[in-house]
Design a protein around this nucleic acid. Structure first.
Lengths: 332, 332
DNA sequence: ATGAAAGCGCTAACAG
DNA sequence: CTGTTAGCGCTTTCAT
C-alpha cells in the first residue's frame, strides 16, 4: 500500500471545509452548498484522493464488495458451468459497480467475511459447513443454484427437475422409449434433481426404466465414454440420450461420429447448459438452458436488499428453457 | 456484516489479558507466556473470534488479499486464455493462502486499491492509464504477460516472439513455404510479438512473404472463417497456417473438415495456448504452450516480495514450448 | 512478558 | 448546511 496515501483530512484542509463535509460529499449527500462541492471536487482532483475503503468500513460504511465463494473442485476452471457462474456474477456486480472478492474454497475454510459486505455462495459441490459458519456469523448471504431448506437462508436456484422433465418428455414425444440419462454426481443437488425429473417423465408416460437407463458419470467425458462403449455393445442400444451437461453431450456426438451412428436419425441427444463453446459444430445441440445470467442478477439484487433493508430471506426458483436445435429426431 | 461480531476486546476480557496481548498472539509474536497463550486460544475458540481484516489493515496490518485486474473486453469469459490466467492466479494465491479480489476492468477505472495489499494486472488488452494510476499511488504491482519498459514496474511475461518463431520454423522445416499467420489484435502486445516472430522466421529462412500471409482476425472465429474463405478460393492456397490461438486453430480444422482438406496431409496447422478443451477431437493440435501456471506463481512471488521487502522491480520472461502433436505434416 | 494509550481514516450522531 | 467529536477494532510504541 502506498505510504503517500492522501487522506480525507488533507482534502478537507485544501478545500477549506471540515472532514465531515468531505465525507458527505463522498457519500453523495445532497445537502451541500454548491460552492463547497466545487472546492471539494477540485481538491480531490488535485490531490488524486481515493478513500480507503477499509477505514470507511470500520466507521460503519460499506466495502462495496461482495464475496463469491465457489467450491474449488478439481477442474473447476475447465467447467463451463462454474465459469459461467463467475462470469455472470461478475457482470451483475459490475452493473451495480460492486467489486468481487473471489474465493475458491478448497480444503480449508479460510474465507474471512470481513472483506465483504455479503456473500454469494455457489453450490457446485456442497460445502455445508462453511455455509453454516457464515450464517452463524450473520454474514448477509445468498446461495446460488441450490435450494436450501433452512428458512433463514436466501437462495436463487434453477428448476433442474423441470428442465430434465421437459427434455425427457421431448424425447418421448419423438417416439423414443429406450432413453438413457448420463447423470452427474448425485451428491450435487442439481444432478440429483435432473435424475428425478428424468425418472418422473418416464413414469408419467408409462415407460419402464431398464437397469442401465441411468448411468452416473460425474460430469466426466471419460466416464461417459466408458458407459457409451458398454451401452452400444449391448443388445438393446438406446435411441436417445439425455446428458447432464453439454460437455458430455459433445462427447456423445464424438462417439456417434466415430462409430458412424447418425444423429439425429439413429440417435437423439439432449444436453444441459447451452454451452456456446460446443455449438460451433455442424450439428447444433438441442439442450436445456439455465438462466444463469438472471440467476446472478437476482442473487445480487437479493443480497443488496439483505444488506440494506434487512429483507427477510427470499427463495427464488427460475425456469430453465429447452432450446430445440438439431440433435433430436423422430424414432424411425 | 454481522452486528454480533466478536471483537478482540471480548477475547481479551474472557482470557483475562489485555487486548495488546491478544493482538500479539494473533500476529504470532513469540513473546507470550504459555499460560496466557492457552487462555487466549481457548477464548478465541469459544467465542469463535475472527479478526476484522479491515480494522487490522487500518492499524497497519495486511489484508492478505491481492487484486487481479483483467481488462473486461467483450467475451472475456469465453476466452480460454483469460480464464486460464484467472485460474492460475487463483491457484497460486491459494497456495499462499492469499485471497483474490477480482476486478474486471470495463469502462471506468473504479478499482480501489485500498482493498488489496498489491495488484496483479493482466494485459489482455492494454489499459495503460490504470497502470499509471496505480503506479502513481505506489500500489505494489506486477504486470502479467506484458513486457513493460517502465523500469519501476515488475512484469512476468512469456516470450511470444520466440514461440511464434519456433512454430513457424517448425513449419518451414516441414517444407512449407506458403504459410499464413492468422494474427490477433495488434494492439495486444503478445499478438504483435507473435507476428514479429513469424516474420523473423520467414526472413531468416529466406522465404518471401506474400501480401496475404498475415491476416489480422482479432482472435475471432468468425473473422478467421472469412479469411479462410478468401485464402482457399485464391489461386495459391496456403499449405500451412500458424494461428494466434487454439480457438482459431480449431476453426481452421473445422473449415478443413467441411471442405475436405486433409490435415495434416494437405494442410498443416499450429495453434497457440494449448487449450485442453479443444484437444479432444480425433486430431490433436500441434500448438505452442504458454507456461501460465508458472507465470502466475512467479507473479505472486514477486508481488509478495515487493510488499514485504520492497525488492526492486523484477522483469521476468518465461519460455513457451512447442507441443508437437498431429496437425503438422511434411509438404507433399 | 504484558498493559495502557495513541492513533490509523473514516462515518455518523449531535449541536449549531 | 456544516463543524465537532466520539468511536469503529486493531496494531504498535512506550512504559513497566
Amino acid at each position: 500500500m502506498s505510504s503517500s496515501k492522501v487522506t480525507i483530512k488533507e482534502v478537507a484542509s485544501k478545500a477549506g471545509v471540515s472532514i465531515a463535509t468531505v465525507s458527505r460529499y463522498i457519500n453523495k449527500s445532497i445537502r451541500l452548498r454548491e460552492k463547497n462541492r466545487r472546492k471539494i471536487e477540485k481538491a480531490i482532483e488535485e490531490l488524486n484522493y481515493h478513500p480507503l475503503v477499509y477505514a470507511r468500513r470500520l466507521a460503519g460504511g460499506k466495502l462495496n464488495t461482495f464475496g463469491l465463494i465457489i467450491p474449488g473442485y478439481e477442474g473447476i476452471f475447465y467447467s463451463f458451468y462454474a465459469l459461467k457462474i463467475i462470469r455472470e456474477v461478475a457482470v451483475a456486480l459490475d452493473e451495480k459497480e460492486i467489486d468481487m472478492h473471489l474465493n475458491i474454497y478448497r480444503n480449508k475454510d479460510i474465507f474471512n467475511s470481513s472483506l465483504v459486505d455479503g456473500v454469494i455462495m455457489a453450490d457446485v459441490i456442497s460445502n455445508k459447513d462453511q455455509l453454516l459458519r457464515l450464517k452463524k456469523e450473520k454474514v448477509p448471504l445468498v446461495v446460488i443454484n441450490r435450494k436450501i431448506s433452512d428458512k433463514d437462508i436466501s437462495f436463487v436456484a434453477v428448476d433442474n427437475y423441470k428442465g430434465a422433465y421437459e427434455a425427457t418428455e421431448f424425447l418421448i414425444n419423438h417416439g423414443h422409449k429406450n432413453i438413457v440419462h448420463l447423470a452427474g454426481d448425485l451428491e450435487v443437488q442439481c444432478a440429483k434433481q435432473r435424475v428425478e425429473g428424468f425418472n418422473a417423465a418416464l413414469e408419467k408416460n408409462g415407460i419402464k426404466k431398464k437397469g442401465n437407463s441411468i448411468c452416473q458419470i460425474n460430469f466426466s467425458r471419460a466416464k461417459a465414454r466408458e458407459e457409451l462403449n458398454k451401452l452400444f455393445s449391448s443388445k438393446e442400444k438406446p435411441t436417445a440420450i439425455f446428458c447432464c451437461s453439454d460437455e458430455v453431450a459433445s462427447e456423445v456426438l464424438n462417439f456417434a461420429d466415430e462409430n458412424s451412428i447418425k444423429v439425429p436419425q439413429s440417435l437423439s441427444v439432449i444436453g444441459f447448459d447451452d454451452n456456446p463453446n460446443l455449438s460451433y459444430r455442424d450439428l447444433m445441440l438441442t439442450t436445456v438452458r439455465q438462466p444463469l445470467d438472471q440467476m446472478a442478477r437476482e442473487a445480487v439484487k437479493i443480497l443488496r436488499q439483505t444488506i440494506d433493508k434487512k429483507t427477510p430471506p427470499q427463495k427464488v426458483v427460475l425456469e430453465p428453457k429447452l432450446v430445440i436445435r438439431d440433435t433430436v429426431g423422430f424414432l424411425q
